[in-house]
Amino acid sequence: MRKQGWWGFSFTLPFLLQLVVFFIFPFIFSLYLTFTKWDLFNPPTWVGLRNWTQMFSNNVFWLSLRNIFYFALLFVPIQTFVALILAYLLNQQIRGKALFRVVYFLPVITPWVAGGLIWLWIYNNDYGILNWLLESLGLERVDWIGSDKWWLVIGAVAVVNVWKGAGYSMVLLLAGMQNISKDIMEAARMDGAGGWTYFTKVTIPIVSPMVYMVMILSTISAFHGFDVFLVMLSDKGDINAVHDRNMVPNILIYRDAFVNVKMGAASAWAWALFLIILLVTMVQKKMEKRWVHYE
């Protein structure tokens, strides 16, 4: 029996080492760094709560939180709604269903650089197709990315992120819809439920656990927003070109860590973001019982 225990331990040892080296140690070490000043070249110097006090007194920190909350409030419900509608339509008996699924999923596997360049062209103030459509309707051009209105810029970036991520959420919701029992479907049809009534009264309550999971994942993804902001708002990857009014936490973390080489400050930013995501997720978890239905 003891020999079997040693064999079991030896087989799990690589996983345990990976857990310690790549998760537990970085987790604890990053927390320690929040109380130090470290430039990657010299030993960390203990500074106590200075990184935290400087962070809370930094106006850019509060601007980044404002932007990321606004971004999440736009991105999460819009993407969830779009993915839900697409999944419902693709769950019907229509021709070319497999082709449509591939088309809607293509943005997910499109590299951010390629997708960002396409959207920068669409948003372009001089020759972008979106402004061309606005002019065709007799409306004025809009500087979507270069505007000094932060809410307009963040909103434009949120639309790009919806385009990129809706396909993934669609697949998850489609899987949930395909697991709906045929007996439930037939009973609802016999009771006269069809179209919008069937969608709202039958489909959504049954797939609400999957909708909840999509919203949790989308919220975490929103607060982790980095690639989309770097591609859309920086000048050819120059992270210093992102204006403070359009700043988000992960850009701040990257800039302090790898541009300004302030690992202590960057760790404080990262831990603050972690605590915010944890708090938002706990609030969502608290609201789960109000609208999520489990069979």
Rank of each mutant, 00 (worst) to 15 (best):
G48D: 03
P44N: 04
I145V: 15
V103I: 14
V160C: 13
F226K: 02
G237H: 01
L106K: 02
V157Q: 09
P249H: 06
Q54C: 12
G192F: 01
F81K: 00
F69A: 13
L49Y: 08
R245L: 10
F22H: 01
V153N: 07
V102K: 06
M210R: 13
L106A: 03
G165R: 00
F35A: 14
H293D: 03
L89N: 05
Q18P: 09
I109T: 04
W151M: 13
L230A: 14
F23R: 07
I276A: 08
G176C: 05
W112K: 08
F274L: 03
A83N: 03
T281A: 12
P14T: 10
L252C: 13
V157T: 13
M190H: 09
Q4N: 15
Q54E: 15
N58M: 03
N42P: 08
E140H: 09
N260E: 11
L278M: 14
R189E: 13
F229Q: 04
K286C: 01
G165A: 04
K262W: 11
I253Q: 00
L31K: 01
G48F: 03
N67I: 04
V228C: 03
I85Q: 02
I85H: 03
Y254S: 01
H224P: 01
N260D: 07
L233Y: 02
T219H: 04
M185R: 05
L84D: 12
A156Q: 06
Q93Y: 07
I28D: 03
V162K: 03
L174I: 13
S218Y: 01
L90P: 08
K262R: 11
D227V: 04
A187K: 10
M190A: 10
K201A: 05
W196T: 02
F61E: 06
K289M: 06
F23M: 09
L16V: 06
F71S: 11
L252N: 05
D148G: 08
P26Q: 01
W62N: 02
L13A: 12
I251V: 09
Y88G: 04
V280L: 02
D238V: 10
